[in-house]
Simulated assay, not measured.
Amino acid sequence: MSTKSTLSPVPMTGNLPPRVPDVFNDEYRAAMQVVMAEREPMDWIGVHQFLGFHEDREAGAQFVTRRLPETPNHERLVLAHSTQAILTVLCGSLVGVGGTLAVEELTYPTIAKFAKQSGFALVGVKLDDRGIIPDAFEKVCQERKPQALYTLPTLQNPTTSMMSLARREAIVAIAQKYGVKIFEDDIYSLLPERVAPPLASLAPEITYYMLGTAKSVGAGLKAAYLVTPETSDPARLFWPGSGMTYWMIAPANAGVSTVLIRNGGVDRIISAVREETRARQQMVTNALGGISLRTTPECLHVWMEAPHDRSVLDFVADCKRRGAEVGPAATFLLAGGVAPHYVRFGTGKAHDRAELQRGLEAIAGAYFS
């Protein structure tokens, strides 16, 4: 018999970074003070700077070198309020009405909304625990001729797969062979300490590289950086009315992010988020031992197999009754096929470890009932 919790279910369908107020609060306040002291508010707020102010684009170029092998020319940088906003523009401009975007067979659900809005088709590419399967990608390129591939090669959402260097080289070679652009979302890459190099470092001429702060610093900071290929024209792609959305970054967020990048605050926050994520993943291990699941110590989400004798939706509903909201695999299946017998849940949105423990106990109770 299932047990219903008297408290609100712990929100675990999202995969936000955990709160680290002891570090974040002081760093953010200090950075805001620097911004207000060094910038003239009217010059800063009273004008549009669509691609970002010069100093903020330079800071963005510095930020992405945490992953890229060299600092890109800041003229190739675009600042936006999220990778989601960047994707809206890229999909609308480079895939477009009647086009085709290749995606991992399980992926970021909002991509489906972009496809509907912009009138392009999605085609799924098979995955394994090392990410996109090269033969499957080549078959898609031959049969569907996509304009671009959207991929999360590091700690893939939702499956947590990590694309090896050899696999990245194979995917890049296929994209080059068939003239397919790559939209690389590297949003989860700053928490693991050992990660293969980005696809953008292997094929900068075809890769649109995205790195934001939402999954490693704070979801509400709303700062994301796009590095475009050298042959692209960012000003043409990101003109003020593109994508039917306000994609431009708020000047305050850009300024604070720039200060944090330059004074090392962003690294101190990321380090704190990494350590808290590791602690929370250890809680997952302790609470859900014996259950088939995939994650890593620095991953913000867990990919867990549902009980074999129950439907995924029944299991999700039971988790909620007991006090944990988790997401079924079908949420991430955007281009047809059969959803695996899995759920995804995040470890970071719970306000603190005590709340996370309550959620994990609800999941365990539902699984072993």
Rank of each mutant, 00 (worst) to 15 (best):
Met1Trp: 05
Ser2Leu: 12
Leu7Pro: 00
Val10Met: 10
Met12Ser: 07
Gly14Met: 12
Leu16Asn: 12
Pro21Val: 10
Pro21Lys: 07
Pro21Arg: 08
Asn25Ile: 11
Glu27Gly: 04
Glu27Ala: 14
Val35Trp: 00
Met36Arg: 14
Glu40Asp: 15
Met42Gly: 05
Ile45Thr: 11
Gly46Cys: 11
Phe53Glu: 12
His54Ile: 09
Glu55Pro: 05
Ala59His: 05
Ala59Lys: 06
Phe63Asp: 04
Thr65Trp: 08
Thr65Glu: 12
Leu68Ile: 05
Pro69Thr: 06
Glu70Met: 10
Asn73Gln: 07
Glu75Ile: 00
Arg76Phe: 08
Leu79Glu: 11
His81Arg: 15
Leu87His: 13
Thr88Glu: 12
Val95Lys: 02
Val95Leu: 04
Val95Pro: 02
Gly98Arg: 04
Thr100Asp: 04
Val103Phe: 06
Pro109Leu: 05
Lys113Gly: 12
Phe114Thr: 01
Lys116His: 12
Gly119Asn: 08
Lys126Trp: 03
Lys126Gln: 14
Asp128Met: 00
Arg130Ala: 14
Ile133Arg: 02
Lys139Ile: 01
Val140Pro: 06
Gln142Phe: 03
Arg144Gln: 14
Arg144Phe: 10
Lys145Gly: 02
Pro146Gln: 02
Gln147Lys: 13
Leu149Asn: 11
Thr151Val: 15
Pro153Asp: 06
Thr154Glu: 12
Leu155Asp: 13
Ala166Ser: 14
Ala170Val: 01
Ile171Met: 00
Ala173Tyr: 01
Ile182Arg: 00
Phe183Ser: 02
Leu190Lys: 09
Pro192His: 07
Ala196Leu: 03
Pro198Tyr: 06
Thr207Ile: 01
Thr207Pro: 01
Ala214Phe: 03
Ala214Lys: 13
Lys215His: 15
Val217Gln: 07
Val217Gly: 01
Gly220Ala: 04
Ala223Asp: 08
Ala224Trp: 03
Val227Thr: 03
Pro240Val: 13
Trp247Leu: 09
Ile249Ala: 13
Pro251Cys: 01
Pro251Trp: 02
Asn253Ala: 15
Asn253Ile: 08
Ala254Ser: 15
Val256Thr: 14
Val256Arg: 10
Ser257Glu: 10
Thr258Met: 12
Leu260Ser: 06
Ile261Pro: 11
Arg262Lys: 15
Gly264Phe: 06
Gly265His: 08
Gly265Tyr: 09
Val266Trp: 09
Ile269Cys: 06
Ala272His: 03
Val273Ile: 09
Arg274Glu: 08
Ala279Arg: 15
Arg280Ala: 11
Met283Cys: 05
Met283Tyr: 05
Met283His: 02
Val284Trp: 02
Thr285Asn: 10
Ala287Pro: 03
Gly289Phe: 10
Ser292Trp: 04
Thr295Asp: 04
Thr295Pro: 02
Cys299Tyr: 06
Trp303Lys: 00
Met304Thr: 09
Ala306Tyr: 09
Ala306Ile: 05
Pro307Tyr: 01
Phe315Val: 06
Val316Cys: 07
Ala317His: 12
Asp318Gln: 13
Arg321Phe: 00
Gly323Val: 04
Pro328Phe: 11
Leu333Phe: 11
Ala335Asn: 03
Gly336Met: 03
Gly337Ala: 04
Ala339Thr: 00
Ala339Tyr: 02
Pro340Arg: 01
Gly348Pro: 07
Gly348Phe: 04
Leu360Ala: 06
Ala366Trp: 11
Phe368Glu: 15
Ser369Lys: 09
Ser369Asp: 14
